[in-house]
């Protein structure tokens, strides 16, 4: 299969999650004796293209009209590239970037798409995908009919690809501004600059729930512990709804899906919608004052107690130990 990877990038290079998409693409290309290529869209992305070329040959659509990821323009460029090059499979990491753009591209390309893929296999020579349903309680195996097929993958399911020997070619994709849709305009991006790692990329995530009563407490307890462990901070929806944490923190079925090496849940009850976003973490720790809290069923280690007492003690102990 000819596999195209839609790469997502930040200032200096492609995002870690896109390297998981590369890993998926490499596997499928190997299993089908196919090939992989990265597609990069943006403006002034020469340095990013160099970075991407360490993983695969790169196609670059570099144009001022593509400076911001507007779905209608991006989907148009992607679908044109896919048609021109006869790609069989298009893959991207399941982030808000790809969830916005890829289904639109699928709409232009015949609609064979599966999102949030966590595994793949061949059944009678047919490539099939595994994806969670019902907040992760169930896993479905699905087949896609039509060509090309488009998928978003969960980065946690495919460990990020490493650089490969030799530098991939970088090929420019001609962008004709005249044929790009112009019904959407970018106005602004209010990004919350944080000195902590991204919750989807961190090795350790410390998350707070309704057991935390205020922003100050969140920063002191959840943030304080996170900083001791060089961890990212996350939260349940309850704290986002209460305005205590920004929505980018929400872990769960309708927020972000994380699978760090260690997930520490502080004052989180363990609703299925929250579990959907973190239950594939390698080790889960829960601290909760209610011994019956459902979070204890999915936690590897559970400690019953008050986070207001235990977390400051834990920070102090880590101070002594590290």
């Amino acid at each position: 299969m000819r596999v195209l990877i839609l790469c997502e990038h930040e200032s200096h290079g492609i995002r870690l999650c896109s390297r998981s998409a590369v890993a998926f693409a490499n596997l499928v290309a190997e299993q089908t004796r196919g090939s992989v290529e990265c597609l990069l869209l943006g403006h002034s992305v020469a340095a990013v293209a160099q970075d991407a070329a360490a993983y695969a040959p790169v196609l670059v659509a570099d144009h001022p009209a593509l400076a911001n990821p507007l779905a209608d323009r991006y989907a148009k460029v992607i679908s044109d590239v896919v048609k021109q090059r006869g790609c069989d499979l298009v893959v991207a990491a399941a982030t808000t970037f790809a969830k916005d753009i890829l289904p639109r591209a699928a709409g232009l390309l015949g609609g064979a798409m599966a999102s949030e893929v966590i595994g793949h296999e061949f059944r009678d020579g047919q490539l099939c995908f595994r994806r969670p349903l019902f907040a992760g309680a169930v896993v479905a195996t699905v087949a896609l009919h039509g060509r090309p097929k488009l998928v978003t993958i969960r980065p946690s399911a495919y460990p990020a690809a490493g650089v490969r020997a030799g530098h991939g070619d970088i090929t420019a994709v001609a962008v004709d501004e005249g044929i790009l849709p112009k019904k959407t305009e970018f106005e602004a991006l209010q990004s919350k600059l944080s000195n902590r790692p991204d919750v989807t990329e961190a090795r350790i995530v410390v998350s707070g729930g309704r057991g935390i009563k205020s922003s100050e407490d969140f920063e002191r307890l959840v943030g304080g512990l996170a900083d001791k462990l060089h961890a990212a901070t996350g939260s349940s929806r309850a704290l986002v709804d209460a305005g205590i944490t920004p929505n980018a923190f929400q872990v769960g079925q309708t927020g972000k899906v994380v699978a760090p090496e260690l997930y520490i849940a502080l004052g989180i009850s363990g609703a299925v919608q929250h579990l959907a976003g973190m239950k594939n973490s390698k080790t889960i720790v829960a601290i909760n004052s209610d011994p019956e809290a459902p979070i204890f069923e999915v936690a590897d280690y559970g400690l019953v107690g008050d986070v207001y007492e235990l977390v400051p003690q834990m920070i102090a102990k880590l101070d002594g130990a590290l």
Binding site: G110, G111, A112, M113, A114, R123, C128, P132, L133, G136, A137, V138, V139, A140, T141, V142, A143, L144, H145, G146, K279, I284, V285, F296, E297, V298, A299, D300, Y301, G302, L303, V304, L310, Q313, M314, K317
Partner: peptide
């Protein structure tokens, strides 16, 4: 375009150990 081939329930495979203290944790 998307055909369901089958469903499986996802079992939980956790240790679920209760620890008695922070030091133990």
């Amino acid at each position: 375009r998307l055909q369901l081939l089958g469903l499986e329930a996802v079992p939980s495979r956790r240790k679920s150990v209760r620890v008695g203290s922070l030091d133990e944790l």
